[in-house]
């Protein structure tokens, strides 16, 4: 691949006992681009995500992240929370994982934990309530307010996250991930369960995140209208291996992809692919 990759996955292997979930997968996600990872159910997409975001330790291979100032980090060696803290990779979950008993605003405040911990002098300055801490807290609330506004949830800032509608919860989770100020945003099926209007709104949000924030996006998605409309590059997986990659158009016309999606029945596959555009 040419260009300026932010994330390079190199011969990634993930075994669970005797099962190989991801087999020698290599792909790259380019900076300030939206890369989609698609494939049928059970293809190993979420496993790749879990390897990238440190929830699994890969059995083999390398995941390299080169941030905007040119530092390169081996994500598989960082592991766990450090991937978000140091490498600035944020993620959302397939089944939404908000803090349901905390307000929308609080959810976004928790996301700024590491920055606020530093500002509060590891709690000590915050306990006394120094002006520097108060200013930092104000800034954090301001950032949260900005993101609530961008996802259209500002009027619901003080409502419990668990009380929000499903689509709102999806958007709040993206806003929460963005509050960690990531260089790479990993979205696991952000359009799942959204209606056509909501997924249209999601497209706009993701494009504005890419264009205004300059955040690179890696997303898993089944909703072809989202994949085809906004992604710059598509990687197709099946049974843990990459079967195709390229521009959305190139991937859509690839017979291997069509076969993987709906068995050998190409007629039907083409119909599905086209209904998505």
């Amino acid at each position: 691949m040419s260009g300026d990759p932010i994330l390079t996955v190199d011969h990634l292997m993930m075994r669970f006992g005797g099962i190989v979930a991801v087999n020698e997968l290599s792909f790259a996600a380019e900076r300030r681009k939206i890369t989609a990872l698609i494939g049928p159910n059970g293809a190993g997409k979420t496993t790749v995500f879990n390897c990238i975001t440190g929830f699994y330790r890969p059995s083999g291979g390398a995941i390299r992240l080169t941030d905007d100032v040119g530092r390169t980090m081996q994500l598989e060696r960082l592991g766990d929370f450090r991937i978000t803290k140091q490498a600035k990779v944020a993620r959302t979950f397939q089944n939404i994982r908000l803090f349901p008993g905390m307000t929308a605003l609080e959810n976004l405040m928790v996301a700024q934990h590491n920055a606020l911990m530093r500002a509060s002098g590891l709690t000590l300055l915050g306990l006394i309530g120094t002006p520097s801490w108060r200013a930092a807290e104000e800034r954090a609330i301001e950032l949260a307010r900005t993101w609530l506004d961008r996802v259209g949830l500002l009027p619901r800032a003080d409502d419990a996250a668990g009380n929000l509608a499903y689509g709102d919860q999806r958007r709040l989770e993206i806003a929460r991930a963005m509050c960690t100020e990531p260089v790479l945003l990993c979205l696991d099926e952000p359009a799942a369960g959204l209606n056509a209007r909501e997924s249209g709104g999601l497209n706009e949000l993701l494009l504005s995140i890419r264009n205004d924030q300059g955040t690179s996006i890696l997303l898993i998605e089944h909703d072809m209208s989202v994949v085809m409309e906004i992604s710059d590059h598509v990687v197709v997986m099946d049974y843990g291996v990459k079967i195709a990659e390229g521009t959305p158009q190139a991937v859509r016309d690839d017979p291997k992809v069509i076969a993987a999606y709906l068995g050998a029945d190409e007629e039907e596959a083409i119909a599905v692919m086209e209904s998505g555009t």
Binding site: T53, G54, F55, F93, L98, F99, M102
Partner: peptide, 25 residues
């Protein structure tokens, strides 16, 4: 009202989400 306290409550709500937000559990 400090980040550490919010992190405690977030931990009670969802530990996995905490890890995904870069919180040292």
């Amino acid at each position: 009202r400090l980040p550490i306290g919010r992190a405690w409550e977030a931990l009670r709500e969802d530990e996995v989400a905490c890890r995904a937000l870069g919180i040292n559990v």
